[in-house]
Structures are given as C-alpha cells and as structure tokens.
Design a protein around this nucleic acid. Structure first.
Length: 423
RNA sequence: AGAGAGGUGUCCGAGUGGUUGAAGGAGCACGCCUGGAAAGCGUGUAUACCCGUGAGGGUGUCGAGGGUUCGAAUCCCUUCCUCUCUGCCA
C-alpha cells in the first residue's frame, strides 16, 4: 500500500497517477487519508500524554509502597480512576481511526510510473516492439486443442474426470514437453544469476495480505478452509513473502530468486474460444523470477528482466511483442508493467505469456521489507517480478506455430531437454 | 492425533507484580594499548509511532490477542508456533 507520507508530500503527483488509472474519487479519497492521519496523530499525542501521567502516578505509588507509606499511596490511587477511563476512550478512538485509515489505504492502487500511458483497457496498451515473423501456415492448420488430440499429448476429458474443467492431464511427449520447458527456464535463470527456490505451494493468510491477494481477491484463490491455507495463484506469493518482516543490508542487493511452481486460479472469467484449450486453466505451471532491489535502480532492473524474458522467447523462436500496459489495464499493485505476448498462429491471436512489473515500495510497505541505509535508517526496498515463463500458452504457441504435415517441430533449444525433436 | 516442555534484544541467557527496555555473557562499532595483530581496558550497541527546528522527550513493544491491577516479561484466559516422547505416514 501507499505510504501516507508519499501522499502528503507528493499530493499532485499521486493524484494525477491515480487518475491515469481511472481510480474514481481519487482526490476525495486522498484528502480523507490525510485527514484521518492527522486525527490519528492528534489522538496519539493526547493518549500518550495521559498514559505518561498515569505511569508517573504508578511510579509514585511504587515509591510510597516501598517506603511503607500505605495510606498516602491509597490516596493517590483515586486520581488514576478518571485518567484510566479517558485513556480507554482515546485508545478506542485511536484504534478505530487507524483501522479506518488502513482500510482506505488498502483500496488505493499503486501510483503508475510517469511513462505509463493513460487508458481504460487492453486496447490502450502501448506496443513497445514486435519481434520475429508470423508463420505462414496452410489452410489446414489446426488450433492447439485439436493438435493435442491428434497427437494424444494433453487430455482435458481425463482432467475433468479426476478434477474438473481447466485441469489438463499431460501425457507422453506432452508431459515431457512440460518438464523440458520447466528445466530449460530454470537453467536459463540460473545462468542469469537467479537462485532457485522451491517454496510451499500453500500459503497462510499473512502471505496473502503481504502480496495483495488479500483482502479483496480471495475469490481468485483456492482455499484449504480446514487449515486456513490458500493454494498459490503464482510463485510470487511465497517467494516475495520470504522477505516479509525482513531488514536487509545494502550489500544483500540485488536478491534474485527463481521458482517453478504449479499455479492455481479459480477465476470464473469468460467463456468461448478465448478460454478454450490451454488459454486459461485452473492449474498451470509457471517459472517466476522475483527481485528485491535498491530503490535507486529498480527501473534498470525492470529493463533487465524485460530483456531476459525476451531472450527466452527468442531462444524458443516464437514471434512475440512487448506491451507497456496502460493505467487502466495494469495490476493493482504495479507501477509499471510490461506484458509479453506470443503469437499463436492457428488461433491467430496474441497470447500473454509473461507480465513483468516493478512494484516500487508498494508491496514492501505491506511486507515491511526494508534495508538499512548508510545512515542506519531503515528504508523500504523495491520488489519486482515476472513470469519466465508461464507454460500453457507457450505450449499452445509452439504446437500451433510449428505444426507440419509430419508432426510438430520442437524448438532446437529444447531438444536436449526433450530427447526428441518432433511430436 | 495424544502426553509433556518451552517461546525474552543480533545470538546465548537471567528474570514470577513496582526506576526492567529488560542483569550477565557473546557478537558488533569506536577509542586506548601495540611496530602490526591477538589479548586486555573503556565507551556504545533494538524497534515503531508521536511531540520538538534541534538537543531531547513521550508512548507502545519480552510469540500474538484479551483480562486482572494504581502498576504485568512476571498472575489469569484465548490463540499461534517450536521442541521432546508416543502414534500414524511419503
């Protein structure tokens, strides 16, 4: 969440940013935050002063008791009665104000970076670049949901039988393609200096709050209610939460983690061709990169991560484009997001396979993820993450783009991981 | 899942109602000593929030939340976690 200080010191900038996101009632909400914060401070001062008075009386009583002057002690006791009831009132006020303030702050999204274009929906996203050429396939080309049946590599019906819609069963070369891609992505990340992590894929409530899935979006996560645990929608949740309540040293930067996990999403979403086949699933595999960095260079790091994800797509020989998301399409917690989309030549659509974001200190404020600066002050770190990459749509694109009469050609770079070059 | 033990500062560890934010030790930082280092000696060493231009002061924090009390690390209740033994199990 945003810092109250940021709102106060950069009111206009924050306001303009929120308006770029189409955050309604931005100005009124920001004023409300400042007003509540002012009340909070005043209440605290008043409460603390009374508490101090009460503490002093207690000390006096303690001193008198030690000297055996019981009667005098009894006399001043009566003075505390009124103070105590006042403190109780102020204490309640304080808690209420603080809670109200927190609730409002939870509803305010991150302030977009200056370079984020205004806009309402995906149509207003800015295309930064396109790379690779779109394959020219014959009319007989098949979408991946037909290809997977033809070659018997992914079975949705079996998934329905044992779990439900959106839980595919990968078989034979389909399963090996999954495993090969995961290993390829992890190896590449390792070469790029990321440390591999295997986190739990169920997380507790605190973790959900830390990265912003809670409150609000609990409907998107599967929940193991008996144990109050949530199945992760992305590895971002466990990995970023590794650093919850952590104070780092400046020398620890940059922290670069990579994790492969299955991801679980309930999202009801829309129906029809756009969610057919592998386009949208309840369970899918993803390799995620997360960095925790010094605030001064988080945007350089974002560009690095952007280039890194592109390098993966290039190695897989997939045509892709990079979008800079507009204010209206950007995630709640992000300051700047690049989406990478691959072209899927039979669906004739661009499919999002990665989203790389800088959250600046929006997440770390909730997480209390800080570092000690030179003057020993604790300062919030910046967090970033990106998919590198999400598997299903990559698979869809590989299958569709590389289909031939004789089978589906695998990208060269994967062959050592697969042990075959055609499906 | 059952029985027991326990959660205190960076770490170890004392503390069962009254200058305890917390003894003692270790570690760390600085200074003295030394040719240099070790040892030794001295000083300092939590955090959040609030008040104050500043020096400085206040409040809260001994797993978390509540309660008793003029006063709680210390007593009571609830809850979370860890460890040991037993059971179960990949």
């Amino acid at each position: 969440m945003l810092l109250v200080n940021t709102i106060r010191d950069n009111f206009e900038t924050v306001l303009e940013g929120l308006q770029k996101r189409n955050f309604t009632h931005a100005e009124a909400t920001l004023h409300q935050v400042l007003e509540l914060d002012k009340t909070r401070k005043e209440t605290q001062t008043e409460r603390d002063n009374l508490q101090a008075e009460s503490n002093n009386i207690s000390k006096e009583i303690g001193a008198l008791m030690r000297e055996g002057k019981k009667e005098e002690a009894e006399k001043i006791k009566s003075r505390t009665v009124e103070i105590k009831s006042q403190i109780k009132i102020l204490e309640d006020n304080y808690n209420n104000v603080e809670e109200d303030l927190k609730q409002i702050l939870y509803t305010i999204p991150n302030v977009p970076h200056i370079s984020v274009p205004a806009g309402k929906s995906a149509e207003d996203n800015e295309i930064v670049l396109e790379h690779g050429s779109i394959p020219d396939l014959p009319e007989s080309k098949l979408p991946h949901w037909d290809l997977i049946k033809k070659y018997d590599i992914i079975d949705f019906d079996l998934g329905v039988k044992i779990a439900g819609a959106g839980f595919p069963v990968y078989k034979g070369r389909g399963a090996r393609l999954q495993r090969g891609l995961i290993n390829f992505f992890l190896d590449e990340a390792m070469k790029a200096g990321y440390t591999e992590i295997q986190p739990p894929i169920l997380v507790n409530e605190d973790s959900g709050y830390g990265t912003g899935q809670l409150p609000d979006k609990e409907g998107q996560m599967y929940e193991a209610t008996a144990d109050k645990l949530f199945l992760i929608p992305t590895a971002e949740v466990p990995i970023t939460n590794l650093y919850r309540d952590v104070i780092l040293n400046e020398q620890d930067f940059p922290i670069k983690n990579v994790a492969y996990t299955p991801c679980f999403r309930r999202e009801a979403g829309s129906w029809g061709a756009h969610v057919r086949g592998l386009n949208r699933l309840h369970q899918f595999d993803k390799v995620e990169i997360v960095q925790v960095v010094h605030p001064d260079n988080s945007y350089e790091v974002l560009e690095d991560m952007n280039m890194y994800v592109q390098s993966l797509l290039q190695k897989l020989e997939l045509p892709y484009r990079v979008l800079r998301l507009c204010g209206g399409d950007m995630g709640f917690t992000s300051s700047l997001t690049y989406d990478m989309e691959v072209y899927s030549a039979a669906q004739e659509r661009w499919l999002e396979v990665s989203s790389v974001s800088n959250f600046e200190n929006y997440q770390s404020n909730r997480l209390k993820l800080r570092y000690k600066g030179e003057d020993k002050k604790t300062i919030l770190a910046h967090t970033l993450n990106g998919s590198a990459l999400a598997l299903p749509r990559i698979v869809a694109s590989i299958l569709e783009n590389n289909q031939t009469e004789h089978g589906i050609k695998m990208p060269k770079v994967l062959v050592p991981y697969l042990g075959f070059d055609m499906i």
